[in-house]
């Protein structure tokens, strides 16, 4: 689910940048550092704006200036039970992998409806029920997350298409 979230971050600036447009530089650095990262619980999708840049404080020893920046960001936190759209990246006999934006997820064969079977002879290999559902690399699928796990700098999820209205999006 997406949230608008107020966050805060310390940004340091090298002395050579000290000058009139310091605030722009700080904002730029913030965007660079933060956008598209995963904190472990959510992904920071984009930064809307910075609303509070504190006065710079020179760090003793290094001469870098440290700013505390308050900013508003759109974050995405995947929840268990959430339904997301994803693009299939890899298909094998055990199941298929897909990316929902920054989140890699896996749908195992157990969580695929029984009529959709793995066909290793097709090129490329695919899951298909020999009708409208063909899941191969590049297919858009709608899945429901049934478990997530966070690691440093990344998240993973297990998803299912074994429910109504889930699965291949191209047919519908």
């Amino acid at each position: 689910m997406f949230f608008l979230y107020n966050l805060e971050r310390q940004v340091t600036l090298h002395p050579s940048y000290f000058g009139r447009n310091m605030h722009e530089l700080v904002t730029g650095k913030l965007l660079q550092d933060v956008e598209g990262t995963c904190t472990g619980r959510y992904f920071i999708i984009t930064i809307m704006d910075t609303f509070d840049i504190s006065e710079g404080r020179i760090l003793p020893g290094s001469g870098l200036a440290e700013f505390t920046v308050g900013y508003r960001a759109v974050v995405w936190r995947p929840f268990k039970g959430e339904t997301v759209d994803a693009i299939v990246t890899s298909v094998n006999a055990v199941g298929f992998f897909a990316d929902a934006g920054p989140l890699p997820l896996f749908v195992s064969a157990h969580l695929i409806p029984l009529d959709i079977k793995f066909d290793p002879n097709a090129t490329p290999p695919q899951f298909t029920n020999n009708e409208d559902s063909v899941i191969e690399v590049g297919t858009h699928v709608r899945v429901k997350l049934i478990g997530t796990r966070a690691e440093v700098g990344g998240m993973y999820a297990i998803a299912s298409i074994k429910e109504d209205y889930l699965g291949c999006l191209q047919g519908s």
């Binding site: 055990v94 896996f106 997350l145 796990r149 297990i158």
Partner: peptide, 16 residues
Amino acid sequence: SIQFAGLCGMCGKDMT
């Protein structure tokens, strides 16, 4: 019996 990055691929539980 199927695990993906520390998650069970069948029930979605955290295996770690």
